[in-house]
């Protein structure tokens, strides 16, 4: 008989395998969808144009770009029932749901086996954190058609969860005294939730930058005129994505929700620190990084409101913010010295 703890590990690996399949499906979708989803008329037109341009690539005209992006915008906001039904994206989403159910089961069995919340060592942070990433992604699908982020999210989760399971797995052990607190439940959970939301904002900002590059290239190509050498304007799937501006404002919305949760994490963490260590704030390494991340995102929000900073620059700040979150979770947890020695990877001395 498998113990609950072992069952949990099996479920985790099953989830990873399913996410990997979802990743493949989503990637396949991105690679093929651009050609397929053009409706009949546009497809015919594009063919015609291609004939005329004699292999001159498929740089859309400004009008076409607008039409493309309007269509993508409508698709983004369409209610789940009215969405396009690309086969591989649907397979990807179905698999992601399946993997998610496995992961939720893995998380719950781990928690039951430990007799406490399953987020008290580094392996468990990763387990719960990535579960929330998938959860937030699946939840947001009810509001926006973000399936173009599916490959990014499932890929990230396969990577994070796979690497932590391989390298940082620790068997369940009793909680250290400072962790025995209701704040463990709140503070760590909200931090993970914020991270999950930041991940989506990050993905959208990356898409935004790619889309922006494509838009610029299209404009440049048009200025250059049709006689010039054919240009490549960027990955094909981008033509199904909303405008960079629309991606940016969507990214911002995720980021500010993440920011609120992160602010809460910061405050809840300092309340807990006061109970456990006798001071609200002591510039412990982990506190420093939580603060740095908070300030970077505050900077990002300001950048969005500052002339000359909206667009590319603020997108980069969002990307830097999420990189800092990942850095905090990996490098700071493992290599930086401090009071937060709860990775469970070394016995405290």
């Amino acid at each position: 008989m498998l113990s609950l703890e072992e069952l949990s590990v099996w479920l985790v690996w099953t989830a990873i395998a399913i996410y990997a399949l979802a990743f493949i499906a989503y990637t396949w979708d991105l690679a093929t969808r651009s050609a397929k989803s053009l409706d009949e008329k546009d497809a015919a037109k594009a063919r015609e144009r291609e004939l005329v341009a004699a292999g001159g690539g498929s740089v859309p005209s400004a009008d076409e770009l607008h039409r493309e992006q309007d269509r993508a915008e409508a698709a983004l906001r369409a209610a789940p029932r009215d969405r396009t039904r690309p086969v591989f994206a649907r397979i990807g989403t179905a698999l992601t749901w399946l993997g998610f159910l496995c992961q939720v089961a893995a998380d719950i069995t781990r928690g039951v086996a430990a007799g406490r919340v399953p987020w008290a060592d580094m392996y468990e942070f990763a387990l719960t954190g990535t579960m929330l990433m998938i959860g937030v992604y699946l939840l947001s699908l009810f509001f926006y058609d973000l399936r173009f982020l599916g490959a990014f999210i499932t890929g990230l989760v396969v990577l994070l969860l796979g690497l932590t399971s391989m390298n940082f797995y620790v068997a369940i052990s009793p909680l250290m005294d400072p962790l025995k607190s209701p704040w463990l439940v709140i503070h760590v959970f909200v931090a993970s939730l914020a991270t999950a939301i930041f991940a989506l904002a990050f993905g959208l900002s990356v898409m935004q930058l790619m889309q922006q590059r494509r838009e610029h290239k299209i404009v440049a190509a048009q200025l250059a005129g049709p006689d010039d050498a054919p240009v490549k304007v960027g990955w094909g799937f981008l033509r199904n994505l909303p405008s960079s501006e629309s991606l940016e404002s969507l990214s911002y919305r995720f980021a500010i929700i993440g920011f609120i949760f992160w602010s809460f994490t910061l405050v809840a963490g300092s309340i807990w620190a006061n109970y456990a260590w006798g001071r609200f704030w002591g510039f412990d390494t982990k506190e420093v990084w939580t603060f740095i991340i908070w300030v970077v995102y505050a900077g990002y929000i300001h950048a969005r409101a500052t002339r000359g900073w909206r667009g590319t620059r603020s997108a980069w700040l969002n990307i830097i913010g999420f990189s800092a979150v990942m850095f905090n979770f990996t490098i700071v947890n493992l290599f930086f010295k401090g009071l937060h020695v709860y990775s469970g990877l070394t016995t405290a001395s």
Partner: peptide, 28 residues
């Protein structure tokens, strides 16, 4: 100005980094 606030915020974030790498008298 907003730009100054923004730059100062980013500076603050950068300036906080070394304190997490080098041990601090207050914490350690």
């Amino acid at each position: 100005s907003m730009r100054t606030a923004l730059v100062l915020l980013l500076l603050l974030a950068i300036a906080a980094v070394p304190g997490s790498i080098v041990p601090q008298r207050s914490a350690d």
